[in-house]
Amino acid sequence: MNSDITVSELAAMAADNEKRCQVWHPVQGVIFDGTFDELDRQHYLADKTVDNFSIEDDVFIMNI
């Protein structure tokens, strides 16, 4: 799904902050792997625009 939303805005919508999520970068690969609660404290990712997102094997994945 395509979006015009930031990492922090999308993370704030999580129903369960203890669910696992990942942030992927096209060149660097996985740049974050943890819970939504932990992601909320990663200020360097907060304003990054999410290109698309999906759920795979119960992991919420955001591609930036």
Rank of each mutant, 00 (worst) to 15 (best):
D57S: 06
I55T: 14
T49S: 05
R41H: 11
D40W: 00
I31N: 05
I55S: 12
T6M: 05
C21D: 10
N52P: 00
T6L: 06
K48T: 02
S54C: 08
A11N: 10
E18L: 01
D16Q: 12
F60R: 03
Q22T: 13
R20E: 14
R20K: 03
M62T: 06
R20H: 12
F36R: 13
V7N: 07
R20C: 04
E56M: 08
P26G: 01
M62C: 06
N2D: 11
S8H: 10
F53T: 00
M62I: 03
D51N: 12
I5E: 14
T35P: 10
H43Q: 12
D40P: 02
D40L: 03
Q42E: 10
I64Y: 15
A12H: 03
Q22S: 13
V7M: 04
S3Q: 10
R20N: 11
A11C: 11
D37C: 09
V30S: 09
F32T: 05
L10C: 03
E56T: 06
V27M: 01
V7F: 03
H25M: 09
N2V: 08
R41M: 15
E18W: 03
N2R: 12
L10E: 01
I61R: 14
W24C: 09
F32W: 04
D58P: 00
N17E: 13
D57G: 00
A12T: 06
A46T: 12
V27K: 08
N63P: 03
F60V: 03
D58E: 13
K48F: 00
N17R: 08
A46H: 15
A46N: 14
K19T: 08
V59N: 04
V23K: 12
T49Q: 02
A11T: 02
V30P: 05
R20A: 12
G29H: 06
D47E: 09
I64D: 07
E38M: 14
K48A: 08
Q28R: 14
D47F: 03
M62A: 04
D57P: 00
D33T: 04
V30R: 15
I64K: 12
Q22R: 15
S54W: 10
S8I: 14
D51H: 12
V23R: 12
V27P: 01
M1I: 11
I61W: 01
Q28I: 05
N17I: 01
A15H: 05
A12C: 02
D16L: 07
F36D: 00
Q28Y: 14
D4C: 09
V23P: 01
T6A: 04
